[in-house]
Simulated scan of single mutants.
Amino acid sequence: MSYPATLPVLPIELIEHALDYLRGDPKTLATCRLVCRAWTARARYNLFYIIKLCMSNTPRFIRAVERDPSAAYAVHELTLEGMWNNPKRMSTCPWTANLRTLRLHFMDLHSPWLPKVTQPATNSLTELSLKTCALLDTQELVRFLQLLPQLKHFAASHVIIRARDDVPEKEPIEAFPAVQSLCLWGDCRTGVPLRLLCAFTSATGGLESLSVLTIKLRTRELVMFNDLLMLVAANLRELALTVQPDDSQTSPGSASPLSLSACRRLSSLKLDVWLLYPGPPTHRGHLNWVVDFFASIRSDDVRRIQLDVRANRATPCDLAELDWGGVDRVLSLARFASLRRVVVRVKQVGVDLKTRVEPYVREQMAVVEAKGILRCVQTDSV
């Protein structure tokens, strides 16, 4: 029995579900919108769901919003890249009223676009990320975030701060949003990730609800980070820490500059370190703190630990720079009974190490290996 061509072969619910997977593919969605009337509404909704605006495509987007203002309310994820011009012809309708995610690339917080975008989204915006953006100082960013009370996730990568010194606000206008996830990344030689974390914790109500923290630091910054970590440790469940070595050293047997004893709810930990100091080969001891760092864990709910080791320029003899056996002894203690997975990723593996890394790690971490929870991965890339 043949059905009329006007009837859908599949239920419309399945078709709409399939169209949802095309978000971020404007060419395909534009074609789907023309297939039939039943597809038009959902395809148009997904077409405007994820929008990326730059100087070249902004006029076309403005014309589309002016033709169909209702479609603009479908914008949930917006990326602004290099928007320095003045949005003179922007539609007066609050087209970002349903905005959930905002990404700013190569922008300044003084951009005239930001008030147009963020003011209608004050009560809807939950995720914000900055990439290669310029700030006058850290307090400029704090004041900007204080205007977004529903913000839950914030990420900053390669942010440029013009001022050298940070002066905290004496009388903050608004409380800092209850951020749950925080990612601070970039060139840690500038100290920007730590400066931002310091500014956030100093703000009124800053980071009291933080549960996920990703940050990149230098070895010399671990002591100051330890003090800041105490302020956010109460609800912290996931910590991803990248430590880039510098000329500071810790002697064997000395206390670790960083302790996780206050992170009683920690369930996932990722540590990313360099096997070799990127300087003179005579400089040793930059990883002496790692074993004590793991030993400082006091949470009874740690289920996953990942250790990433960058082995750029390393030889087989350099594998001993990290006390793998010491890490194995710590993770074999009774308080790590809830541990379900230990992942060791050795990255940037050279030709000399390709056949030696995995056997060496499994031999040095024999107790964890015997428990069946060790996974060793080696890769050529970062």
Rank of each mutant, 00 (worst) to 15 (best):
145 L>D: 05
14 L>H: 04
40 T>P: 00
257 P>R: 03
76 H>W: 09
6 T>L: 06
299 S>V: 08
154 F>C: 05
235 N>R: 14
352 D>W: 03
347 K>Y: 03
54 C>G: 14
318 D>I: 05
49 Y>P: 00
67 R>G: 05
139 Q>W: 05
165 D>M: 12
52 K>P: 00
369 E>D: 15
10 L>H: 02
306 Q>W: 09
20 D>V: 09
78 L>K: 01
298 R>K: 13
298 R>C: 12
376 C>W: 01
305 I>W: 01
73 Y>Q: 09
207 L>E: 05
62 I>T: 12
221 E>H: 13
263 C>D: 04
41 A>G: 00
198 C>H: 14
90 M>N: 01
241 L>H: 04
274 W>C: 07
315 T>A: 11
250 T>H: 05
132 T>H: 09
5 A>W: 03
236 L>V: 10
256 S>I: 04
219 T>G: 12
20 D>S: 11
276 L>E: 03
264 R>I: 09
91 S>T: 13
376 C>L: 08
176 F>D: 10
82 G>V: 06
62 I>L: 13
109 L>R: 04
258 L>K: 01
211 S>N: 13
193 P>A: 10
267 S>C: 08
302 V>L: 07
2 S>P: 12
345 R>T: 07
318 D>V: 05
118 T>R: 08
100 R>S: 11
371 K>S: 13
175 A>Q: 11
325 G>N: 06
278 P>K: 07
220 R>S: 15
149 P>W: 02
89 R>H: 12
289 W>A: 01
154 F>D: 00
186 G>P: 02
101 T>V: 12
93 C>S: 11
153 H>Y: 14
289 W>T: 02
274 W>H: 08
211 S>K: 10
237 R>M: 14
351 V>K: 08
188 C>T: 15
310 R>I: 15
58 T>G: 00
115 P>M: 11
23 R>V: 14
287 L>S: 00
186 G>A: 07
319 L>M: 13
342 V>W: 00
354 K>W: 13
270 K>T: 12
360 Y>G: 03
183 C>P: 00
294 F>Y: 10
169 E>I: 12
211 S>F: 07
214 T>D: 15
294 F>R: 02
320 A>Q: 14
112 P>D: 07
286 H>Q: 10
307 L>E: 02
239 L>C: 09
246 D>P: 04
342 V>D: 03
7 L>V: 15
175 A>E: 13
48 F>L: 05
174 E>A: 15
272 D>V: 04
173 I>D: 14
344 V>N: 01
334 A>N: 13
202 S>T: 15
80 L>W: 01
62 I>D: 08
